[in-house]
Amino acid sequence: MGGTSAGHQRRQAIHGFKAHIAADAGTAIVEDLAVTPGNVHDGRAGGSALPNAPGDVYADSACRGQVFAAAVRAKGGILRIALTGMWGESGTNTLRKLKQWNHSVQRVRCRIEKIFGTWKRSYGLRRMRWRG
């Protein structure tokens, strides 16, 4: 049976929000925050939380793209995103470089992702009601 069920068509639309943060990688203190509608792509909105002269910017792979990269460069930052593949000669040397790069990026990213986990677990920000 194809198509959508009648129950799905009667459900009320769900509207969500995303938080984009600029946090210090060493202390995990949030320095800046931008909230966008949930339907805005991360790569288009993530630059709104960038401080001036951000240094190394560790971002989610959803931020891979020219819009976010241009925003990081315009503020004087260096973009660090985990890679899913790497061009070069085939073999173990390329895979070693890829693993080494991703390990260095993910060591910082895991500290930053803990901020979102704490918000959800301890402060009830998994689901919120907004008015206005």
Rank of each mutant, 00 (worst) to 15 (best):
N39F: 03
G47V: 02
A71V: 08
A6F: 03
T84F: 09
G88W: 09
P54K: 06
A49Q: 07
W87N: 10
N102D: 01
M128R: 13
W101T: 05
M1S: 14
K114W: 07
W119R: 01
L98A: 05
R96P: 00
Q100L: 03
F68Y: 14
A70I: 05
G2F: 12
R111D: 04
Y58E: 08
E31D: 03
V67A: 15
G47W: 02
A74S: 12
E113S: 01
A82S: 15
H8D: 09
S122F: 10
Q100F: 05
N102P: 13
S5K: 03
K114I: 08
A19P: 01
P54L: 11
G85C: 14
G55Y: 05
G38H: 04
G65F: 05
A23L: 09
G55E: 08
R111H: 13
V40N: 01
V72T: 08
E113Y: 04
G76C: 10
G2R: 15
G85E: 00
P51D: 01
Q66I: 13
T94A: 14
A70T: 15
T36Y: 03
I21S: 03
D42Y: 07
R64H: 15
N39A: 05
T27D: 14
R64V: 15
E89P: 14
A49K: 04
A49C: 14
E31F: 02
Q100H: 11
G55T: 14
E89V: 03
L98V: 08
T84E: 04
E89M: 04
I29Q: 09
G43T: 08
D56V: 04
W130V: 13
W87D: 05
A74P: 07
L79D: 06
G3A: 13
G124C: 13
